[in-house]
């Protein structure tokens, strides 16, 4: 019984480490797209996805460190990303983010 517990714990640890490596690699590839990206929408979408990967990294590190203190941080990054996505969509569609007169 003890041995099974040990195996599952190390399994979680190794899985989390592998996931962190994958997400970090994708962040590096996205950084290339954000810097090089041919057009501005490419850069904006790349920055958006970097934020999503940041959320994933925070969650994975919370699993690795066995703590619940990161939950607020994850929610916070999610909310700021939502604002960013709305602003990005509005910029791509209208070219202006805060208008003077809507109607």
């Amino acid at each position: 019984m003890e041995q099974i517990l040990d195996v599952t714990q190390s399994l979680i640890e190794y899985t989390t480490l592998i996931c962190i490596t994958g997400v970090a690699a994708s962040v590096i590839i996205l950084l290339y797209r954000a810097i090089k990206g041919p057009t501005n929408p490419d850069r904006a979408v790349a920055l958006d996805i970097i934020g999503i990967n940041l959320m994933a990294l925070a969650g994975l590190i919370a699993i690795l460190l066995v703590t619940t203190k990161f939950n607020d941080v994850i929610l916070l990054i999610g909310i700021l990303l939502f604002i960013g996505t709305v602003a990005l969509a509005k910029f791509l569609e209208k070219g202006v983010i805060i208008e003077r007169d809507m109607d």
Binding site: F70, D72, I79, L80, I83, V86, R100, D101
Partner: peptide, 28 residues
């Protein structure tokens, strides 16, 4: 005591204000 505090609370409040500005425009 926990994650949080004045700075990030103010940032969240201004995020809510910015969302309202984006949806409803400056004048209203």
């Amino acid at each position: 005591n926990k994650p949080g505090g004045g700075f990030i609370g103010g940032l969240m409040t201004s995020a809510a204000f910015v969302l309202m500005y984006m949806a409803y425009g400056f004048r209203s």
